[in-house]
Nucleic acid binder design. Structure first.
Lengths: 230, 230
DNA sequence: TTGTCGGCCGATCGCCGACAA
DNA sequence: TTGTCGGCGATCGGCCGACAA
């Protein structure tokens, strides 16, 4: 999985430590996160674990769930002996000033799906900025300007969309191919879609699912479906 | 799962030993059937198993696959000590002369789906015998005679069908509700459907899938899809 | 600039009798 | 008696511009 696409899907809040950098590992926090409330397993151990362990990052793998397309990472940590402890600024590893960071911001775009986007009745409203900076150049001399857009998802599968610039006032839309994508990926209003143009000029598409909240057996998005009073 | 429905789905060739009856267990045959060709596991054991073991049936559970509706059974066997060996006719347990057998034959009906039945373009041609002996009585004074038929599947789920008697010449058909059933159960031409009327007068429906044969990646039924020359 | 809506057109679904095996 | 077909009406998917936020 392309790290650029992975980061675009994960969002700007997610930063990954580079290989050979040093991080603190929090066993209890990990245990609580892994199986909520099951941290007793570790506490019951004969030798109590320290609250934090200084480790060296020896490997990072960028992965995506085959079912949901949700991205995650596997990070390999090796604990350091107390004598190896030495403080180094993370910036030495380019954590903050990653040059890929600025480039990524320029060539990726995320949009939260509206009801109209997710309704099976129609297409996808492409924000102008996304169409002009991420999508392939459209020939505006045609009337209406139309092109076929190919985008690769996190699994390498290619999706085909009809990209048209029409309506009054003019706007960019994805029509044919869009509803298939929505249905296959089981997207609903509130989920986000990410478009990314790699340095090779290749277009990629990722998704970022909204947190679901169960409503009496039905799955729905908090805030949606709630009639506004007043 | 109702044993009557189970037997109707399994077909007349399948007979189950009753509880407390005695049967021979063939370990090698079981192993070969369980994982084809993997019988070496048993042969490699320190103590070679006897070719057949006389057992007592201590339990039989009639089950159905939640995905495919295909029926199977779990039979609990307890090996008998050599001293316990005594010959008894299986008929003493009612294996052959099961009174439920004759009743079942009267009130269940199986039909192999034709292309027209499985095509999503239409309904299901109900053989007259099935309609008249299994289905609820139709009021022939109406024109055309129509009723709603409810049938419970092996999971207890209820399916609703529109049963109509129409056309020239007249015939029984299931229309509305049929294609939903076909799609949900993923039925294709060659599969069979079983209708059963229980002693309580309740209508049940089961399926019996045809053996699939793979045709270059496509799944199809042997004999179907083959154009007839001459 | 873009979210939502109603209109509308074409494709598909599915009910029908005709006809023949 | 019942399998298959063509016809056709209803429904649905999905593309469109209007309009307003």
């Amino acid at each position: 999985l392309d790290p650029q696409l992975w980061h675009a899907c994960a969002g700007g809040m997610v930063q990954m430590p580079p290989v050979r950098s040093r991080v603190y590992y929090f066993p209890q926090g990990h245990a609580e996160h892994a199986h909520a409330g099951g941290a007793a397993d570790l506490a019951a151990g004969a030798r109590p674990l320290p609250p934090l362990v200084l480790c060296s990052v020896t490997g990072v793998r960028f992965l995506a769930d085959p079912e949901t397309d949700e991205v995650f990472a596997k990070i390999r940590l090796v604990p350091l002996a107390p004598g190896e402890v030495e403080f180094r600024e993370p910036d030495e590893f380019g954590l903050g000033g990653d040059p890929a960071d600025a480039r990524e911001k320029l060539s990726s775009f995320a949009k939260t799906l509206t009801q109209s986007d997710a309704n099976n009745g129609g297409g996808f409203s492409v924000p102008r900025y996304c169409a002009e900076t991420i999508f392939p150049k459209l020939d505006y001399r045609a009337d209406p300007p139309v092109q076929t857009v190919l985008a690769k998802d996190v699994h390498g599968e290619v999706w085909k969309f009809r990209h048209i610039y029409r309506g009054t006032p003019r706007r960019h839309l994805l029509t044919t191919g869009w509803s298939t994508f929505v249905n296959q990926k089981k997207l609903i209003a509130g989920d986000s879609i990410v478009f990314l143009r790699t340095e090779h000029g290749e277009l990629c598409v990722g998704i970022r699912r909204a947190k679901r909240v169960s409503c009496g057996g039905m799955e729905c998005m908090s805030g949606w479906n709630a009639p506004g009073y007043g």
